[in-house]
Each structure stands twice: as structure tokens, then as C-alpha cells.
Amino acid sequence: MKRDFGFLIIFAVVIIFAAEWIGFQSITIGSITITLLPLVFAILLTMVLGMSVFRKGIMKKVYSKANIGFASQYLIFIMLPLMARYGADVAPRIKDILQVGWVFIIQDLGNLGTVLIGLPIAVLLGLRREAIGATLGIGREGELAYISEKYTLESKEGRGVLSLYIIGTLFGALFFSVFAPILLDLGFRPEALAMASGVGSSSMMTGASSTLVARLPEMEETILSYAAASQLLTSFLGTFTMIFLAVPLQKFMYKLLVRGDEA
């Protein structure tokens, strides 16, 4: 196991080299520019190379059970320096942030957008009880805990939230790193997009705010501080927003949508 771990470190160094060497790439479609950062290449490369077809020889040692286990068990610790960095971004801007504190609080209600937009689409596609689990939130640990407690993970609701969890884990950061700058091109203010980045998942927040920083380097400090402050607020309020607002709203809309469907 010790020797396999060495392979993991060497592999990580090689991937970082490759991802940084590819560097920033942008694709322009009409008036919309999609910026791909090294972090996007890092996750794409490691995901693709981890597919079972490539797991031969040395790659089999890199993607050993112990190494994948290490990466998933300790990913959160590898992320901690990033979270510490966010503290330093918020501190110098704390006065500005508190001044528009109420904006941070109301935009946090935007998390209900998962129900408002996601639920009608889910019902339209023919999903029923799965839709409850799949649209309550962005399917992170909070929703997972709530759904598994109320319905168990073996239920249809549970399958819905688990599916969302898997999709979010695999593609969440990628999705937001592409989606955030699209809204920038559509005319949204960078401050608003930075605030919105605090969706409740650190990797998704990083995906969204990093591409905004890459597009507007002169606003780095504002973007990072707003995103981090909003993310902190979501960590505090997220559970309450879910239980007291998202759950009742979802119940109400579900009844309305499903009834309309039968008529």
C-alpha cells in the first residue's frame, strides 16, 4: 500500500503539470465565452484516466483501492487550505459585505430555485416520488441526510437524491465553471454572480467563482469574498431554509403539479 501511495503522489504531480500546461482555454460561441481553467482539465483527466479501460500496469497501481479510498476519505482535508484562503478574502471586505448583508440573506433564498425550476421539469419528464429527492436542493449532504431520515435511501425519494448526489459529485464543479460565465455574458453583475456562487457545495462554489476570477482578474478580491461569505451563510442557514421553506414549498407545488397532470 505504501508503494502504491507513492504512485498516487507522482500521478497527481504529473496531472497538475499537464493541467497547468494546457492552461486557460476559451471557446467562444456567439457572444458567449466558455472559459476552461486548469482545474477543469485536472478533474477531466483524472476522471477519464480512472475509467476501467485505462487501469492497466502502473495506472492500476495509481487507481488502487487504497488510493481511491485515500482520495475520497481525505479530499475534505486537502480542501481545507482553500477554505482558509477564503477567510483572508472576506476579512478585508467585511465592512462592504455587512453593509449589503441583507442582499446576501435574500439571495440565499434563491436556493429554492431547485424546487421552483427543477420540480416542474421533473414532473413533466414523468418523475414522481424520485422528483421529491432530486429537487429538494442540490443534493448534497444536508438533503441526503434529510431524505434518508424521512424516506430511507432505498425509497424512490432516496434514489432521487442519491442520483443527484452522484451527478453533482461528478459534474457539479464542471457545470458551474461553465454556467457562471455564461450568465456574465448575459449581463449579470459579477457581484451578483459571486454571491450566487455560494450554492452550498464547496467544489461547486469553487468552480463558479474561479472562472469568474479568470474572466475578471481585476475583481478577484470582490468575487472571492462575496462567494465565500455567501457560502458561509448557506452553511449556516441551509438546513433551516430546506426544512422550513423548501420542504413546504415542494409539497405544495408537487400536489398542484401532479393533480394538474391527472386532470
Binding site: V100, G113, I117, T135, A192
Partner: peptide, 26 residues
């Protein structure tokens, strides 16, 4: 594939709604 489509709208929904509220608030 249905949940995958829903996921796209769920992610878009939370981000877009927050961005609209923030833009409005600012």
C-alpha cells in the same frame, strides 16, 4: 437520464434564482 436532465435544471435553478435576487438587491 431523466434525473440527469433534472439535475441540470436543479443546478441552473439555484444559481439563476440566487443571481436574480442578488442583482435585484444590489
Amino acid at each position: 437520464w431523466k434525473v440527469a436532465i433534472v439535475a441540470v435544471f436543479v443546478f441552473m435553478g439555484t444559481y439563476l434564482a440566487s443571481a436574480l435576487l442578488a442583482q435585484f438587491g444590489l
